[in-house]
Computed example of a mutant assay.
Amino acid sequence: MHKVTFKFENSEDIIVFAAFGESLLEVARKTNVAIDAPCSGNASCGKCRVKLVGGELESKKTRHITDEDYADGWRLACVSAINADVEVLVPDIASAYRSRMKVADLSSPEELKIFSDAKEQILEAGIELKNTLEILNISMDQPNLDDTMPDNERFTRAIKALTGIERIRVPYSVLKKLPDVLRESGFRVKIIVRKIETDIFVYDVFPETEEVIVGGIAIDIGTTTVSAILINMLDGSILAKGSSGNGQIRYGADVINRIIESAKPGGKDRLQKAVIDET
């Protein structure tokens, strides 16, 4: 194993260890060192320039680096392999992909107007904004020595009596909390359901006095930006919004290069980790 030291102009060094022959760009990616590589390491863009400042690095000369720059220590990380302990300077310009990550302030008046205008246009087009989610208030008689009906049966019978629908589905997550919620609330509860003509699915159960929000989330995974919006599914109001740069960008600035990356060994896992675990 060889020691690899990444040096920066405005922050502390990062030291890692790499095996002989490993690509410097891949070592940087595994260490979350930001090196811009729009071509995903195919040596075609020339953006992943780093400067060799100590040790040794096996790196062939490419058309993207002049003879003068090469003599001065400049190398492309994607065509550089670890063959000894090495120190490289990662210039700020090599992290330029961060400037391409557009992070929107989704609470600004301009952004909110985009959402409200889109909603109005949908309604004007005759598309009804609705879904099958509802909040129902359910009241039951409390059990006693003469009425020992099990909680789950008492619960489903009350839903049937209120809605007239025979098929009631209650998942384990609801059954597990049902006894405590029923007794905390005097058998008067509020439930979130998905209701259609022949079927009711119970998503959750709460005491009758609790304020309940039925939330739905939409996530847009863009090439450079990932945005999410949380809305109230009953009235369409916006509850929360967020935006962040897509970490996949360090594996290529466009979709084609990310497809190329996905075909490499472990490429799919790296792309998934970048967007799911990091972003």
Rank of each mutant, 00 (worst) to 15 (best):
V174F: 03
F206T: 03
L175H: 00
I192R: 07
I159E: 08
R194I: 00
D204L: 05
P171Y: 04
E184I: 09
I191T: 01
F206C: 00
K195N: 01
N152Y: 09
L145Y: 12
S173L: 11
E208Y: 12
V174W: 02
T198K: 13
R194N: 14
T163V: 06
V181Y: 04
V205D: 00
D147E: 11
D204A: 11
D151Q: 05
V189K: 02
G164F: 06
S185A: 15
R183P: 00
I196Y: 09
I159T: 04
V202S: 00
K190P: 00
V170L: 08
N144Q: 08
L178E: 07
I196N: 12
E153S: 11
I192P: 00
D199S: 11
I200Q: 03
S185Y: 09
D147C: 06
L175Q: 12
I159S: 07
D146Y: 13
F187P: 03
D146Q: 13
D204Q: 03
F155G: 00
D180I: 12
R194C: 01
F155A: 01
I159A: 08
E166M: 07
G186E: 08
D204V: 03
R154T: 03
V174A: 02
I191G: 01
I200L: 09
E197W: 11
P207H: 07
L175D: 04
F201E: 13
I165D: 08
T198H: 12
N144P: 05
N144L: 04
L145W: 11
A161Q: 14
E153T: 15
D204H: 05
D180V: 13
L175K: 13
E184F: 10
D146M: 14
T209W: 14
L175M: 14
R167G: 00
D146H: 10
R188Y: 09
V170K: 07
R183V: 10
I196E: 15
R194W: 07
L178C: 02
R183M: 10
I165G: 03
I192H: 03
F187K: 04
R167M: 13
Y203Q: 10
D151F: 06
I200T: 01
G164W: 08
N152S: 11
D199I: 01
N152R: 12
P150I: 02
S173G: 08
E153M: 12
T163R: 01
I192Y: 06
A158K: 05
K177F: 07
E210S: 09
R188L: 10
E184T: 10
R169M: 14
M149T: 15
P150E: 06
M149G: 00
T198V: 10
G164P: 02
G186P: 03
L175R: 12
D146G: 11
S185N: 02
D146T: 13
T209M: 09
F206A: 03
I168T: 05
T148C: 04
R169G: 03
R169F: 15
D199A: 04
R157P: 04
R154C: 08
K177S: 14
Y203A: 07
K160N: 10
N144G: 10
I159H: 03
K176L: 10
R194A: 13
I191E: 06
D151A: 09
E208D: 13
V202D: 01
E184L: 12
V181M: 01
E166K: 12
T198D: 15
V193T: 10
P150S: 08
R183H: 08
I168D: 06
V193K: 05
V193D: 02
M149N: 09
Y203C: 05
I191D: 08
D204P: 07
F206V: 02
R188C: 09
I196H: 09
D151W: 06
A158S: 12
